[in-house]
Amino acid sequence: MKTDIFISGVGGQGILSIAAVIGEAALHQDLYMKQAEVHGMSQRGGDVQSNLRISDKPIYSDLIAKGKADLILSLEPMESLRYLPWLSKEGWLVTNSKPLINMNNYPEEAALKEALDRVPNKVILDVESIAKDLGSVRVSNIVMLGAATPFLGIAYEEIENGIRRIFDRKGQAIVELNLRALAAGKEVADRMMPKSL
């Protein structure tokens, strides 16, 4: 088993909390993992990404080679496209649909849509509105993670357990909310995926 994931977004969006849940689940299953993060300058609203690698064999590189990623998991649509050169031809792109515009040359909606349309395997969803319906935009990240669960190579229940362990100290209500967010994300992904998968 080996899954190479690019998690991307804009500094401040909180991509690291997604990585933390996956990492927790992976380590708990005695899988090897490496997760390269971006700290520093770009956290001030610049583009940020994390290379997350999980395997049942030892992993050497902290960085994923071009064309080898199984999944791009992105909290922002343009940012999901930035890492396409790393995605394998069979890989999946799972992204939030809502742009975060903190720059003046952000692409036109139509051009962005067209570029996303060209990616063969994708799940695109508006995580914020789903999270809002669940009662809190703060669980947007976990909705996003839920939509990626079919592609992680880790059983869904293990991701649920990861959430339980990570959010445990915040109380049962928060754990439940995050589990519902995870399920809501997964439901969208299941709907968008071809049945054969």
Binding site: K66, M78, P85, S88, K89, P107, A115, V119
Partner: peptide
Amino acid sequence: PDHVAKAFGLPSYETFELPDVVQMRPPS
């Protein structure tokens, strides 16, 4: 890893182009 692969002439993997809609997003 890509630099090392190229240096030793190892095959690279087929992949997607970077779409030209992607713009720089400097920190602010």
